[in-house]
Each structure stands twice: as C-alpha cells, then as structure tokens.
Simulated scan of single mutants.
Amino acid sequence: MRTLQRIALALVIIGAINWGLIGFFRFDLVAAIFGGQGSFLARVVYGLVGLSGLVCLSILFAPIRQEDHKKEQINNRNLKYATEFGEENDLSEYKKD
C-alpha cells in the first residue's frame, strides 16, 4: 500500500471512530478538540477525512494481486478428510462366519 493510502486509511478510521462516538454518545471528539464544529481547524479535519474516504475508494476497487488470489484459492479448496459423515467402506466381505 502506498504511503498516501495508509494516511488516508488512518484518517478514515479516525472519522469512523468520531462518527461512532456521535452515534452512541452524541459526543463529537473532533469538535471538542478543535473548538466546535464551526471552527476552522475542525472543518479542515472534516474535509481531510472526507477526501481520505475518496482516496480509499481506490483501495476498494483495486484489482486483487495474483499472489493474493492464489493464496485465497489454496485456503478455500475443499480438503476431503475422513469424518464420521464420510463414506464408510463395505466390511461385509470381511465378515467371519
């Protein structure tokens, strides 16, 4: 991941935490730190979080790298281990009379 994407992701996480605080506790942490929602610094932070969300869209729609796709295929393959629900061998031919 590029440095810009990491910074953007960190800002999006900060924004998500702030929205969680607003939703659950009606407490706006950014406004509390920077002097209210209308202050210049709070508006800058809100703007940066919004732009970071747009940058993170590139992460969402980025193609999966070939190495990651192969790892997913290996992890998702159906391994057939014998279990109590598996097929049982017919032991009737080995029956002693």
Rank of each mutant, 00 (worst) to 15 (best):
S92M: 06
I59K: 12
D28M: 08
N89P: 11
N18F: 08
R26Y: 12
E88F: 15
F40V: 07
I33P: 07
R26T: 13
H69E: 09
V55T: 03
L9C: 06
A16Y: 06
D68Q: 11
I17N: 07
K80M: 13
E93S: 12
K71S: 11
I33A: 02
L79C: 05
E87G: 13
K80T: 14
E72Y: 14
A62V: 06
N18D: 04
Y46I: 04
L41I: 03
W19K: 15
E87S: 14
R6L: 04
K70A: 06
F27W: 09
R2Y: 05
Y94P: 02
G38H: 08
V30M: 09
L91Y: 12
F24I: 15
F24S: 11
K95E: 03
D90N: 05
K96G: 03
Q66V: 15
L4A: 08
R6G: 02
M1Y: 08
K70W: 03
F27E: 00
L54Q: 01
A42E: 00
A32Q: 14
R77K: 13
A42F: 00
Y81Q: 07
L29P: 03
L9V: 06
K71M: 13
E93W: 13
P63D: 01
H69P: 00
I17H: 09
F25G: 00
V12N: 04
T83Y: 01
F27V: 13
P63F: 04
S39M: 08
V44L: 12
L4D: 04
V45C: 06
I17T: 09
L60I: 14
R2E: 03
L29S: 05
V12Y: 05
D97L: 14
I14G: 00
P63M: 06
F24A: 14
I13A: 05
Y46Q: 02
F61T: 06
Y46M: 04
F27Y: 10
D90Y: 02
I13E: 03
S39F: 07
G53C: 03
V12H: 07
M1S: 09
G15D: 00
K80P: 12
I33R: 09
R65F: 10
G15E: 00
I74F: 08
A16C: 10
E87T: 13
D97R: 15
G36Y: 00
E88C: 13
E67G: 07
N76F: 02
R2I: 14
L54K: 05
E67K: 14
E72F: 15
I14W: 01
N75R: 15
V45Y: 01
L79K: 05
E84I: 15
V55I: 09
L91K: 14
R77W: 10
M1E: 02
E67N: 08
E88L: 15
D28P: 14
W19M: 15
F61V: 10
Y94V: 10
P63K: 12
